[in-house]
């Protein structure tokens, strides 16, 4: 697969647009998923994901092949998603570092005793609640959580994508998880 991607990138650099269609087809699901979880809105996610691919195409000459191509794409999509979040009117973030705000009643109401998380997740209502909890995270925590859990990336890859030391990535994931625990742990 890697060689196929590399060969496609070479063709794109020579100006062959059709080669790029293969790249889009290959990565669109992951990139869209990332944007959707970052933004929580299908329409906006579609918009930002498409923009990410167009940016990648236009800037393909700046792509440095020592980096994984997927990491480069993720970086573009992450940055564009963050830009979009900042442009939107600021939501009320519940800061992850605030302690002692456990058990928000809104989430407590949805608690369903005796079902496993997998079963409970079948309910659309819960899907919505989990997504809302992600959207409540400040963007620096939201980014690492989405990259780690939605796309199952390693800490190493996340550190490459965000150009941050692994230690920082780890700390952010821990804090993001703690914040989510407060919103979701009582369900």
């Amino acid at each position: 697969m890697e060689t196929f991607i590399k060969q496609r990138i070479k063709a794109i650099k020579k100006g062959d647009q059709n080669a790029f269609a293969d790249i889009v087809e290959f990565y669109k699901d992951k990139i869209y998923q990332l944007c959707y979880r970052m933004l929580g809105n299908r329409h906006e996610a579609e918009d930002v994901a498409q923009e990410a691919f167009i940016r990648a195409y236009v800037n393909i000459h700046t792509y440095d092949s020592t980096m994984k191509f997927s990491s480069w794409l993720y970086r573009i999509a992450t940055n564009l998603s963050i830009d979009r979040i900042r442009k939107k009117k600021p939501d009320v973030y519940l800061d992850a570092e605030v302690t002692g705000t456990d058990g928000l009643t809104m989430y407590s109401q949805l608690a369903d005793e005796g079902t496993s998380p997998e079963d409970a997740l079948e309910s659309l209502e819960l899907q919505k609640t989990v997504q809302e909890a992600i959207l409540k995270l400040p963007e620096k925590y939201r980014t690492v959580i989405v990259l780690k859990y939605i796309d199952e990336l390693s800490l190493q890859e996340i550190s490459e994508i965000l150009d941050l030391p692994i230690g920082t990535v780890k700390t952010r994931i821990h804090r993001g998880r703690e914040a989510l625990r407060k919103y979701l742990g009582d369900l």
Binding site: Y36, E118, L126, Q127, V130, I134
Partner: peptide, 11 residues
């Protein structure tokens, strides 16, 4: 597990 089990949303 809640986050890992979020359903896949297709473009």
């Amino acid at each position: 597990s809640f986050i890992e089990n979020l359903s896949h949303i297709a473009p």
